[in-house]
Simulated scan of single mutants.
Amino acid sequence: MGWRMPSETAAHERTWMAFPREGITLGDTDAEREEGYATWTAVTAAVARFEPVSIVVDPTETARARRMLPGEVTIIEAPVDEFWMRDHGPTFVVDDERPGVLGAVDWIFNGWGAPDWAEWQNSAEHARIVAAEVGAELISSTMVNEGGGIHVDGEGTVLLTQTVQLDPRRNPYADRARIEAEMARTLGATHAVWLSQGLTRDYDDLGTNGHVDIVATITSPGRLLLHDQRAASHPDHAVTAKLRAELEGQTDAAGRRFEIVSLPAPETLTDAHGPVDWSYVNHLVVNGGVIACGFGEERADAQARAILAEAYPGREVVTVDARGLFARGGGIHCITQQQPAVTR
């Protein structure tokens, strides 16, 4: 089989999501829970402006989902515990030698390294449920991985992070060669670009240990957007400078040196729990648009929209307040997963 993960900029059939359910991620108070429901709903509505959305909903939340979500959204009932679809759901691929065939990679999901607080057993089944729903060929992997831990250009390049795929809580016996071989088998990635780490906050208890989709993304072959923390007092100032130096010395699968475009961080540096990891890199590209994270900062949000509009010509950039997502450990890209269009 010649599986290949298309670039996120390729045409989509739809976007997949999971609706929140009560538990540690949603929050302990009524206000926290309502914020979570409202934020997931706002992202769903924004994506649905551009392309169909299917969302997996726990039966205990079906009535709320039908009340809150846009009517055109397709609801699939199944047990849910975590609701970060990018990470626990399938990663979709195509086979260029078999037009019309869709594949769905089923990574092993263990709640970002099996922390004590995580509940993931229900959502770990979603890749198989979704694959069956869309008639995709299931590609089982023995590697623990999440969709937020990879970015591809659709032409053989994959971005990875040493502290994610080589995390001993995920893949204790893996080395780079084994990870890269699995990326080639499942995604058609022939060239891996390794980052040494992710953002500082992402190593907290509720973090992913360095997901790349909050740090860098490939907007077109040979061109990267990189999170840029410009405040010297923030620990990610040194981190992003280090990552830039690492990327400047690497090439993509075609041998091109990367053009690196800075995407400045918002001005807010801390919250009640310490330095924030608010990042505009964690956006979703959709058909004809880009769903961008907003942080209630008019100037910074507008600057990010302008950079994203230049990076993705001809697409409308729409900002959705993502503070309710980042407070729970992720962003817009983390709760969505694109299904590429194939000719049936």
Rank of each mutant, 00 (worst) to 15 (best):
V320H: 07
V320L: 05
G289Q: 02
E32T: 14
A177E: 15
I218S: 08
G255M: 05
R14E: 05
G147A: 03
Y37A: 01
T240L: 12
E51R: 04
I214M: 10
I260D: 08
A48L: 09
A63H: 07
E248K: 13
V94K: 03
A181I: 05
A124F: 00
Q337L: 01
P340V: 14
A31H: 14
A124H: 02
R328I: 10
T142I: 13
I218P: 08
V105R: 01
A114I: 03
D58A: 01
R64K: 15
S262I: 04
L325N: 09
R14D: 02
T163F: 03
Q337A: 00
V281C: 05
G103P: 05
I76Y: 12
P79A: 13
T91G: 03
G294T: 13
D213W: 10
F19C: 07
G188H: 06
A245F: 14
I75R: 01
R305V: 11
G100V: 12
Y37F: 15
V317R: 04
E34N: 15
F109T: 06
Q339F: 04
A254F: 10
E35T: 15
A311S: 15
V101K: 09
T186F: 13
G314R: 01
V281M: 04
L243R: 06
A42D: 10
V317I: 08
P70T: 11
R256S: 14
T91L: 11
A231Q: 14
V47H: 07
G210D: 08
G198M: 07
W3S: 09
P172E: 08
D96S: 10
T157P: 12
V215W: 11
T41R: 11
D96I: 06
S54L: 13
P340G: 13
G23W: 12
P52R: 09
E133G: 10
R185Y: 07
E297D: 00
F92L: 08
T39L: 10
L206T: 11
M1Y: 12
T15C: 03
V193Y: 13
T251Q: 15
F326W: 09
P313M: 00
V215P: 08
P275E: 08
G330Y: 01
L187H: 13
G296A: 10
M1C: 11
L138S: 07
R169S: 11
